[in-house]
């Protein structure tokens, strides 16, 4: 397992949302402002990394029969820690995400990675897997937020960026964001559940299109490489 390959897997070829198609609930529910998206993404990244490391560390000592129950307990533990810390230090985020923070427990990404990856791999590999898978998840959330916020209310970076007194980042969710066009011309429907389903559908469609195209390209490149001499394949 090399790190570079894990990185592309997490971000593109095996992206948790776009390719594995798991963990959709929160993806569609909270992506209405950039503040929520970044907050949720980073929370999942932290929880996923911690769980991956712990699961991988205890993988040899836990009994096979009750491994799922143990994974769930470990995950619930980390989720509660993050939940409590958010309530104490970034209360605005905890209020904005509401019930979706404790619901990270049943986010299939985390239990899925524990079962599919960490059980069989070393601590280091699991650590990077957590970071990259979490990063891939965060990137998807950010893309969805940016799109929905722009189309829905003509804004960028709601809650996170404050431009009233010079450009700065806010942690308390009060930043009004950058208004790109007057909000009354936005399609407010993108902020509603409809927009969540539609945006994710379009995003996965684009991803499938791109993956198919790159697969085709690779095939063509292989054919070309076969025709050409070895030097070409070395360049690849």
């Amino acid at each position: 397992m090399n790190i570079k390959k894990q990185f592309t897997e997490g971000l593109i070829t095996n992206n948790p949302v776009l390719v594995q198609q798991i963990g959709m609930c929160a993806t569609m529910a909270i992506t209405t402002t950039l503040f929520n998206g970044v907050g949720m993404g980073l929370s999942v990244l932290i929880i996923l990394t911690c769980c991956n490391v712990v699961v991988s560390a205890i993988r040899k000592i836990i009994p096979e029969e009750i491994r799922l129950a143990i994974f769930v307990v470990v995950i619930a533990g980390f989720v509660t820690i993050v939940d409590l810390l958010l309530q104490a230090f970034i209360p605005a985020l905890s209020e904005a995400l509401g019930v979706f923070i404790p619901l990270i427990v049943v986010n299939c990404i985390i239990i899925g990675r524990a079962e599919a990856f960490c059980q069989k791999n070393t601590i280091t590999a699991s650590f990077f897997d957590g970071v990259f898978q979490g990063f891939g998840y965060t990137v998807v959330l950010i893309i969805m937020c940016v799109f929905r916020e722009f189309v829905g209310s003509g804004r960028f970076g709601g809650g996170l960026i404050d431009v009233a007194n010079g450009f700065r980042f806010t942690m308390d969710g009060t930043g009004a964001g950058i208004q790109l066009f007057p909000s009354q011309y936005g399609a407010a429907i993108m902020n509603l559940p409809f927009g969540g389903f539609l945006t994710l559908g379009l995003l996965i469609a684009v991803m499938q299109y791109a993956l198919k195209k790159s697969a085709k390209k690779k095939e063509e490149a292989k054919k070309a490489a076969k025709k050409a001499e070895e030097e070409v394949s070395e360049a690849c």
Binding site: I62, P63, I66, A69, I70, V73, V74, A76, G77, T80, I81, L84, L85
Partner: peptide
Amino acid sequence: VLFLICAIVAGILGVV
């Protein structure tokens, strides 16, 4: 084993 792990996790949560 399950009880032990629950107890450890609950203990850590109590501290946090």
